[in-house]
Amino acid sequence: MGKRPFLGWFVTPGALCALGFAAAMAAVLQYAFRAHIPGSLEVGGFTWANFEGMLRPLYATVFLQTVWLCALTAFFSLLLGYPLAHALVHARSTAWKSVLLVVAVTPLFLGEVVRTYSWLTVLGNSGFVNGALLWLGLIDGPIQFMFTRFGVALALVHVTLPVMVIMLAAALSHIDRDYERAAHSLGAGPVRSFLTVTLPLSMPGILAGTGTAFAWTFSAFATPQIIGGGRVNMVSNLVYQLGFSSFNFPFAASLSIVGLALTAAVLGLLRIGTMRLERVGT
């Protein structure tokens, strides 16, 4: 390193970016502890009021709703993602593998807004699902999917699924196939060998995938904004409303900080869980 000092210059762009991010974070952090002066973009002196205000039912509910939606999303992406990842890793033909990979990962390459708008055409009152059900005569009037927690959760699962599948597939592909073969040779059928061997050995992947899905969903904005239509709010939507409708930057900043802390706490807990798992086995 010392003999090629010019290499140090390549760090400059990265360092500048890091500096920018750090400055922004510092700004948000200091805003969070400032008093809001109604009708003005200027902020007042130091205060804890923003964090106290968060405990009011109106905001606390949004936090609870966010955590609940994150948990639901993580759980259902795990439920859907595991079989997909398993099939992806164990597929014999490369063609089938490619098909599965495309199906699993495509949502990642569509912008969040485009993806969310496509759900409008599926879930809307005159959308595909209601249209089909009406045509079949199974329902008399359209079912309300839009602006419901179910609709938001569905779209969030769609957004989160690729991340979950990629993380689970990585974990599953690292499990030696001989474990499963050994279980079969010892008399365990596919279900037993899955439950007693493959599933426990993929636990680190499950924890990592669930944690990431949780954190990934916590910052969701466009999906609850469009599908929720203001009736299903998550923390980001609240931050947006407070910041750009009420111009209450200090409160918006404190909400962001708490959201960030909550995400970090969840990831930390998962890390501890994974470490314990590693100590026990694998």
């Binding site: 001989d178 474990y179 073969r181 040779s185 050995l201 694998t282």
Partner: peptide, 21 residues
């Protein structure tokens, strides 16, 4: 007949002992 009903015992090259047990 599937593997699990053949009544065989097998020792694998890498032993394939279940690491979590």
């Amino acid at each position: 007949v599937p593997v699990w009903q053949r009544g065989i015992g097998m020792v694998f090259q890498n032993y394939a002992l279940f690491p979590h047990m």
